[in-house]
Design a protein around this nucleic acid. Structure first.
Lengths: 235, 235
DNA sequence: TGACATAAGTATCGCGCGGCTACTAAATCG
DNA sequence: CGATTTAGTAGCCGCGCGATACTTATGTCA
């Protein structure tokens, strides 16, 4: 399943004669146990193999930003992310490993099942305890986490991290990992039923102890008719 | 109050020897009557004076993106915006007036009172009926509007468009203009009192007919303790 | 085989918020 | 004085969400 991976995903692999001075940096998240983890790669500089950084590369000629981000993500994780979105452009004076004038950050997620063996060139770090990163990339990581959590209300990110069939407990656990906080079971299921997002299957999960759980599949039916009320309590 | 304005705000005014190939485009909003309006400028090309575009310029050497955006906004509107935030990077193949490889969009707002006479080089267009724009900038305009409306829950954008003292009706009207929809008076005031955001002053507005309205000032006291519940109805 | 543990799923209560209608309050206009 | 206009409030209602407690269905183990 894994594609051919360059020896060093952090190192710009292309050698274009006239490269644009902006990089694409990808913050890759995956659920690891009960924690959310971000992928970091070793610095390309052989002198500083102990330093970690985010996967990055230059934009190729006639390549869209999204295509570059997807390429960087695939090179670093070995698989295509199941969801990805741009976070924004970062161009302050803080240091960046490639000395890019401007860097565009993307946030992406990959399922835990897609992860294969750890390489010596990359490692997953819990978002609670990230390694020391170049200053600009550290800002990108924080912004990516916030952006993903905000986007969860609008994009089915959690669903894209699960297999086609899943139990409601598994779905709730995925939400909890991504949001970094516990949710209430009854409320979670009531809200889920209210929106018509999932439909039950005939399959049941029976693994070990406890009552078997019914499998559901993602099958959204209602279209967004809801209007959000004005909120002042977040100011 | 207006600064010196270049003859053509749309035209990159600086002539750096080695310019970075990315531009900063600013979507400037202002309340105009009961409608939200966006500022457009005439194309720099004397051959195409009938075409409109968004204010744009290149990033100067050792200039942050925000500083560039502020400079572009001031050049186009004559005043500093009272709120501004980055929208994102746009780099698809769609045409852009400066042929920039990559453009970073910013959304900003200026109060209606700060607007001076219309120049022949710029005009305000209602967001409901924008002029035809270069394709990339058209996408930026749509994204900017959505980003601003999303951000209203987290940043006091409406307050920054009002004078230091304002009536609650004025505040509600500002929210309605920015959101593009009507709000309910009682609900609006209840939510506003719930968060402790404004405090009454001793001043009263008595203009013509109707009961006088009390002036309030923006004085947020509570800190954000609220956690948003998970929402499935927006998927 | 019955008690216990474990996990899935449901029932019910209460509270607060958001939308609605209707009402009161204070000014101007004729 | 009465009509009009705008500001501001009161109360009802329904729903969403959190919390607690309960039921159901399996495996484990004495």
């Amino acid at each position: 399943m894994r594609d051919r991976v360059p020896a060093s995903p952090a190192l710009p692999s292309r050698a274009t004669s006239r490269r644009p001075p902006h990089s694409i940096d990808v913050i890759l998240f995956t659920p690891r146990g009960t924690q959310l983890a971000a992928l970091c790669v070793r610095a390309a500089d052989p002198q500083a193999r102990e330093r970690w950084q985010l996967p990055t590369d230059w934009v190729a000629e006639d390549e869209t930003l999204d295509a570059t981000a997807r390429r960087v993500a695939r090179a670093a994780a070995g698989v295509d992310p199941t969801w990805m979105e741009q976070v924004g452009a970062f161009a302050d004076a803080r240091r960046h490993p490639t000395d890019a004038v401007l860097s565009v950050a993307f946030v992406a997620v990959v399922p835990a099942t897609a992860l294969d063996e750890q390489t010596t060139d990359s490692a997953w770090f819990s978002v609670g305890e990230p390694p020391q990163l170049p200053p600009r990339q550290r800002a990108m990581l924080d912004a990516a986490l916030e952006a993903m959590r905000t986007r969860m209300d609008y994009a089915p990110i959690a669903f894209k991290l699960l297999p086609p069939m899943f139990t409601l407990s598994e779905l709730q656990q995925m939400y909890e990992i991504l949001l970094g906080r516990r949710l209430h079971k009854a409320s979670f299921r009531r809200a889920l039923q209210g929106a018509v997002l999932v439909e039950p299957t005939d399959e049941w999960r029976s693994e070990g102890r406890g009552r078997p759980a019914q499998y559901y599949r993602f099958a959204p039916r209602k279209r967004r008719t809801s209007r959000r009320p004005v909120r002042f309590d977040l100011l």
